[in-house]
Design a protein around this nucleic acid. Structure first.
Lengths: 170, 170
DNA sequence: AGCCTCTTCTTGAATGTTAAACAAAAGCGC
DNA sequence: GCGCTTTTGTTTAACATTCAAGAAGAGGCT
């Protein structure tokens, strides 16, 4: 008779030593980098990295505005977190909310002129920080492999059919 | 005459389109993965990912204990953050503090038996989540390149001579 | 010893995040 | 229209993180 043959009772497939090294390198790199950029932006722009990313998204959107849900999806954060974040950015005068005419529940987050200026002032420093931490250290082949791996991981975690057509996207 | 030739006034080296794609893939992958693991562990182990990582470090250390500073360095977090985290884990009964006999300022964080059991119970699910999100999706070559890139990035951000010999490390 | 500086760790307040619950409107089926 | 479910966005409270400040001991120098 064969015991311990069901999936739930089997010994889990632990990480090999090499997998462990990779996993730890990942944890270290991501923790250190996020921390580094948070500090850089908190110092130079007065906001954490993710808030800065929200402003960037808005700056690139048509009419510098996005629906809350779309912005949350782009940034990969919850609507709740976004609500809080936009409230803070609004208090800073960098974003304002606008009602959506076609959906009375909807809200647009709109980048203000002041917000746009902050972005213009601080973007060079931020790009420099990203370059210094990442692109300046990797060879062209490494960058390619790195990007490919990141795409694969992100796709695997994307909640299913995220990005399915939202009506207000055409 | 040549104008605009000083470093501070030059146009910054913006990211190329391909660099932007890589950078966004990175942001998406790391945000989604950290979120995924946080939820998985919050649900199954009652703590966020980073707290879980602290318990793992302690489990692997001799006598299941580490000095606060060393633990903070291993986990790449500030001592302040660690202080708060250990306070919470202590309240859960998974860690206890112990005075260091040779340095009266020092504290050991010690994994309790209960903490060890939580780890044993929840590690299989966590490893499975990491596998599913990361290792199962990357080829062997991709893993290698990925690991190498992560090591390079982490090394570049490591505050200089971190890991220099602490007296209580032999 | 005394003095100074650095290290270790903690604290408290401000800030940010999460999870669950909720209101309001939209969409769908009848 | 009417009911039911889903979507949108916000709110609250609990929790986590950051930052600046501080207590207490260690280490070095004279």
């Amino acid at each position: 008779m064969v015991y311990m043959n069901t999936a739930s009772a089997e010994e889990p497939r632990w990480l090999t030593d090499e997998e462990q090294r990779i996993w730890r390198a990942y944890m270290h790199a991501t923790t250190l980098l996020e921390d580094h950029l948070d500090r850089q932006l908190q110092r130079d722009a007065g906001m954490p990295h993710i808030y800065y990313g929200l402003l960037v998204q808005l700056a690139e959107a048509p009419r510098r505005r996005l629906r809350m849900t779309e912005l949350a999806m782009n940034a990969k954060i919850t609507r709740s977190r976004l609500s809080h974040a936009i409230a803070r950015l609004e208090k800073n005068g960098w974003v304002r909310r606008e009602d959506c005419p076609s959906d009375k529940r909807g809200q647009f987050a709109v980048l203000t002129e002041e917000g746009h200026e902050v972005l213009g002032r601080t973007a060079p420093g931020h790009v420099a920080a990203v370059r210094q931490a990442l692109f300046d250290r990797l060879t062209a082949e490494q960058q390619k492999a790195f990007g490919e791996a990141m795409r694969v991981i992100a796709e695997g975690l994307q909640p299913k059919d995220a990005g399915a057509d939202l009506p207000w996207l055409r």
